[in-house]
């Protein structure tokens, strides 16, 4: 092609392009300005509101991690230290021993230790806990609700859209400031 006649076309395109670019930059700047008021310096992380949790078992199965980042945590100062812990034992345990048939945790992640008559302490082994909430339901139904689910931030990948949150029947997941990443129980009786 002859370059002569194309030159004006070229510059016309150039002009158009410059104009579009300018407006795009202005748009981006405008967007940044508009959103600046709504942005916050601190980022947020996902957490479970224990008051809304319905113990459905989704936390164990829906997390993108092979072993869920949701774990059962134990509020020791709410616990009654019961001998017959309904979080630890099957609903109608055979005996009150640590034998497999009496425990309800599918991965035996609750450790039961004798403190003194008649008190026992229960601790969660987070490497084994899968966040299935079976113990949480037992503890909430009969006991003080000292066992409850929380997202553990040393494991959570903080997905943009939490895969558990979108299927949570209790609508219990929400984003919380990274500076206060846990929603711990502060129950009164």
């Amino acid at each position: 092609m002859n370059p002569g006649p194309t030159t004006p076309a070229f510059s016309r395109r150039q002009f158009l392009r410059d104009g579009l670019r300018l407006s795009a930059v202005a748009g981006a700047a405008g967007l940044a300005g508009a959103m600046a008021g709504r942005t916050q310096a601190q980022t947020t992380v996902w957490q479970i509101d224990p008051a809304k949790c319905v113990r459905c078992g989704n936390c164990a199965t829906k997390c993108v991690l092979e072993q869920s980042a949701v774990k059962c945590v134990h509020a020791f100062d709410i616990c009654g230290y019961c001998q017959l812990c309904t979080g630890y034992f099957e609903p109608e345990p055979n005996e009150l021993t640590t034998a497999a048939e009496n425990q309800q945790c599918p991965t035996a992640a609750i450790k039961r230790t004798f403190v003194e008559d008649p008190y026992y302490e229960y601790e969660i082994d987070e490497n084994l806990c899968i966040g299935c909430a079976k113990c949480v339901e037992g503890c909430t139904r009969f006991g003080n609700g000292s066992l409850y689910l929380q997202i553990r931030h040393d494991r959570c990948l903080n997905c943009n859209e939490c895969a558990i949150a979108r299927t949570c029947p209790g609508d219990a997941f929400r984003r919380v400031p990274v500076t206060h990443p846990y929603l711990l129980k502060t129950d009164t009786h």
């Binding site: 055979n94 034998a99 497999a100 048939e101 991965t107 035996a108 084994l128």
Partner: peptide, 17 residues
């Protein structure tokens, strides 16, 4: 039955880990 449960429970938990 108890023995069998304990056996299986251990086996499956090991397998899971």
């Amino acid at each position: 039955i108890k023995e069998r449960i304990r056996e299986l429970d251990l086996k499956f938990r090991q397998r899971y880990v």
